[in-house]
Design a protein around this nucleic acid. Sequence first.
DNA 1: ATTATTCCTATCGATTTAATAGGAAATACA
DNA 2: TGTATTTCCTATTAAATCGATAGGAATAAT
Lengths: 145, 145
Amino acid sequence: MLSKKTKYGLKALSYLARQEGNTPVQVGEIASNENIPQKFLESILLTLRKSGCLGSKKGKHGGYYLIKKPSDIIMADVMRVLEGPIALVPCVSLNFYEKCDDCPDEISCSVHKLMIQVRDSTLNVFRNTTLADVSKTSKDMDLIK
Amino acid sequence: MLSKKTKYGLKALSYLARQEGNTPVQVGEIASNENIPQKFLESILLTLRKSGCLGSKKGKHGGYYLIKKPSDIIMADVMRVLEGPIALVPCVSLNFYEKCDDCPDEISCSVHKLMIQVRDSTLNVFRNTTLADVSKTSKDMDLIK
DNA sequence: ATTATTCCTATCGATTTAATAGGAAATACA
DNA sequence: TGTATTTCCTATTAAATCGATAGGAATAAT
């Protein structure tokens, strides 16, 4: 299951991607528009900024803004920052690998093989989706038709 | 992330699938061979039995056994019993649907659309994999070559 | 009877999650 | 210069979940 943190983070990024210019948007505005507790969102945007997904400006008229084009922001990267490993078990994680306590032999572990398949299929989605895809509203989709 | 419960449950099912006959196998045997805490495994096998994935026999010489051919046991079903929803958010779950508190409009929610894609790709794996596939050891794989 | 096993309920400690609190640091602007 | 505004940072909390254990009832074989 996705944590609220991840869900809120994605919605906030999507909100920023839907902005016209690149002027900073305040946490309060995002929070109220997306129904996210403001203080919680504050901490989430902070981690996104620290990981290089966002820029920020302090003080009056400050806020957060994207530092890359939405079409250059890969969801796999965002997901790893917000949610951590994409794999369902650490022993098949590409970026957060850990050996299992209970498995003497990884190669012959039945769970292992299955989880590699799941990881790859999930990764296939996240690697081929950008924030630009995610942030398209249904109104945008109508216009495309 | 996969819970230990699910991981242990999968390993236990796989162990049973690798048995020759269909005579009951005791929890203790599975637990020691798969490095699973026995009491914990007891409760896991109980839920698998209650959900119809396993049969059991009480008393001396009792134990657990598969009631279907491994090739008829679909991983999607097993995963739902052990782990619950396959979807990453309840609002895209086929079997455990729940509305989000924070989304006024599901259709236009950006997270929603992404999560449907992930669900479908994961489901594609779990629906097309049976316990027979999972329980194949690397030794089996060698023999096939 | 005795022994071995599943079945059931309850509980526990540790961890994680979601959220809040309070204030420091920085910035805009009057 | 000073005040309002906003991000930044640390700490804390309440609730939920997870992993595991405890103890014994019910059942079956010998």
